[in-house]
Design a binder for these strands. Structure first.
Lengths: 337, 337
DNA sequence: CTGAAAGCGCTTACAG
DNA sequence: CTGAAAGCGCTTACAG
């Protein structure tokens, strides 16, 4: 039953439709001048034969692949599948497909060419939080536009679209101030990222500006379990902060669990918590976490728009876009009266 | 600064290395007979020019693309990014790359050919839980092997590798029985899937076999929030089950939250809970959920192995693989004495 | 609007 | 082991 992969080509369609091969080709290129009548004939023949234009052959002549390389996000953070889906959908709308760029390209092994570049992607969207130097170099080498999604790696010749993390930090500080908070902590993860740095900077500067007191910055770990000891240590001190702004919801939930389960603290009465990301768990009965929501849909749409524009207009000017973030007030913060 | 995309071809390398174009080509095909000396010359020239073989041109002659279509999982389930990463890595090892097949191919819009098939993927791995009929039809049409990852859609000409869900159900029932449970519920989601059906069947038949009582099956919703009302209704009944086996960890955590926060039930003393998936939250202090862990690494490895084998050996016999599941006993079940 | 022909960058028999 | 040449399935000037 293993019929050999009989590929139907434009030649076959041409023969059946009684036209030349170039005419068939034209029919499948939007904007070409083909009479309605022949167009119909060709469509019929194509349908009868189940013809699909061969994208490889096409890209060989047009010198564009309609393929976008996608560096996908690190595992384990619940929000990322949506990202992927949004980007993929958005790309499809624009006539592009996504090919996955392996998360870790082995930087040492120079002999094995990262085979992804053999596919001549027209552009790259980088949604991974970790930095891959060789990727940027390759892209620059081959003049491939690259846009960073919800992240910023400095000193790279690349565009980015990112949430306004600084403003989020400011907002968190303002909220704490408005409800009378006098001491606050910014709880961060272990890997320094630009976006996280912005949150921290916005929070700390605004808190000091408003209250005259410095917010403490404590480094824990982005992983829930690995953050626990640091949080325990914090709560074991003689005086505890009145409010904690956490780099991620994950971290915020670790704080909540420790505070309530191990230190019998009430939230928000004894201690207030704000997270970042609005992961699904933030809405769970047990957490009801006040947090910030990024507009991932818009981030995806804009990222795609940017690469596509740079590809099609051969536009090399980099664009840096900042998207506002939404404050979601739930039950882990005190209400402003 | 917008240097035109100067593509370096094998011809350029040939000229620089002082050999013929076909020799250059041979150097980049493993197994071709080229003298060590010319090989070195070519490598040097290639490096100097930063040459990358053009995969499109290659696949045009070889009639294989080294591209695998990947139907990626539905959003919002925390475990899936790992899946993607594992599959992608595994593919890379085998010399393949993954191109994303949009989650929703519009079945109605027949005029717009799903452009993904213009890329002539050599095979497909389907990791989405939702069924896409046209995808299977396309694959069969074009004789493209397809393997389902951690899921089974019946009546399709496709291989699959899947966890032993039936055994997991049996194990859950056995555990409940061993600690003396007399009444149990299987709490399921809203979308019927084959894998979930297996869990249910294994659980119900084993529970009845061991205890002589029938387990109740209740349909909630895979979404945490949407499942809450059903769970509330269950706990509002006059008598409550002693144990609940949930189709997913998500569901199990909804049960726990409702039980503890709204009905003041103790877990596992008043009610036992078992989940399925071992999502990161299962280890959180607040949950410590007893659950089952799928061997995603192995699922990924086997899936890839199967497609690659079917591609390279032109092997059309379907393979159905079942991978054992690991029971992880935490604190939401009573201990066997 | 349509066709014949060249060319995209490779691989692969075929000679030598 | 190596080179010249045909061919993979398209697109795109060039004529008509």
């Amino acid at each position: 039953m293993n019929s050999p992969k009989q590929t139907v080509t434009s030649k076959d369609v041409a023969k059946l439709a009684g036209v030349s091969q170039s005419t068939v080709s034209r029919v499948f290129i939007s904007g070409s001048s083909v009479s309605e009548k022949t167009k119909q004939k060709v469509f019929e023949a194509a349908k009868a034969l189940n013809y699909r234009p061969n994208a490889f052959a096409r890209s060989l002549t047009t010198n564009e692949s309609k393929l976008i390389g996608l560096v996908f996000p690190d595992a384990d953070y619940p929000i990322h599948m949506k990202t992927l889906q949004l980007i993929s959908t958005e790309l499809q709308k624009q006539g592009y497909s996504a090919v996955l760029i392996p998360w870790q390209i082995d930087d040492n092994d120079n002999h094995s060419i990262p085979n992804i570049f053999q596919y001549r992607v027209d552009g790259v969207i980088a949604a991974s939080a970790t930095f891959n130097k060789s990727l940027y170099e390759e892209c620059e080498e081959f003049n491939i536009p690259i846009v960073q999604y919800a992240r910023v790696v400095k000193d790279t010749k690349s565009s980015h679209v990112v949430s306004d993390n600084y403003a989020a930090g400011q907002l968190a500080a303002q909220h704490f101030h408005h409800v009378g908070t006098k001491s606050a902590v910014y709880l961060t993860g272990n890997v320094p990222t630009y976006t996280n740095g912005e949150r921290e900077a916005g929070f700390c500067s605004e808190f000091e500006e408003l209250t005259g007191k410095q917010a403490r910055v404590i480094e824990a770990d982005y992983d829930y379990l690995d953050s626990l000891d640091t949080i325990r240590a914090l709560f074991s001190e003689s005086t505890q902060p009145q409010a904690i702004f956490c780099a991620t919801d994950n971290l915020a939930m670790a704080v909540m669990d420790i505070a309530r389960l191990e230190f019998n603290l009430r939230i928000p009465e004894d201690i207030q918590v704000i997270g970042f990301d609005d992961i699904p768990q933030a809405q769970w009965l047990n957490y009801q976490l006040t947090t910030f929501k990024q507009d991932f849909k818009r981030l995806a749409r804009e990222s795609v728009k940017i690469v596509v524009n740079q590809i099609q207009e051969r536009n090399t000017s980099l664009v840096k876009l900042m998207i506002p973030v939404q404050f979601i007030e739930r039950n882990t913060t005190q209400k402003i009266k």
